[in-house]
């Protein structure tokens, strides 16, 4: 049996009928075509499917679509505005924080949630915030540097 859900995804209202066993990850990828959110394990281990729900980073493979009813979801597709990269995305590109890119959307969204809460995080706070996002390519160093850079760049923009 399908359940009607209504939620906000990347600033747009969405209404849909979903099966009760469909995950938010499946709903985003298959129903909405938002394939920027990645499926890495389906068990909440890898963090590749991280999206932001009501300001909190969540593994969308562990959230049912029906649980997202009435919530506000931000996926990687909703981060760049007016065709311009978000400062976190820009820093990831410039600092070499991206290799295969499969963890990147989730990693960027975890960073986004962190910087919203703590605009000037310490290195340890950054490492803690992304510790649920596995990356097999980079050794994390350039990701940490990119998040530090993004924090600076956001601060500078807000100050000006």
């Amino acid at each position: 049996m399908k359940t009607l859900i209504s939620l906000v995804v990347n600033g747009e209202s969405v209404e849909s009928a979903v099966d009760s066993n469909v995950t938010l990850l499946q709903f985003l990828r298959e129903d909405l075509g938002l394939t920027g959110t990645k499926h890495g394990c389906g068990l909440g281990d890898c963090g590749a499917c991280t999206v932001i729900m009501d300001g909190q980073p969540v593994n969308s493979c562990l959230v049912l679509a029906v649980q997202a009813n009435g919530r506000e979801i931000l996926t990687i597709e909703g981060l760049a505005e007016n065709g311009k990269l978000h400062p976190i995305q820009q820093a990831f590109v410039e600092k070499g924080a991206i290799q295969c890119g499969f963890c990147t959307p989730g990693m960027i969204l975890s960073a986004k949630a962190l910087l919203a809460e703590k605009p000037k995080p310490t290195e340890q706070e950054i490492r803690m915030a992304i510790s649920g996002n596995l990356c097999r390519c980079t050794g994390y160093q350039k990701i940490v540097e990119a998040i530090q850079e993004a924090a600076k760049s956001i601060e500078a923009t807000e100050a000006s």
Partner: peptide, 15 residues
């Protein structure tokens, strides 16, 4: 910067 950086950072890169 790598060529595919922006596509990967925005979720547009197709796997």
């Amino acid at each position: 910067p790598r060529l595919d950086g922006p596509a990967k950072a925005t979720g547009r890169a197709e796997y």
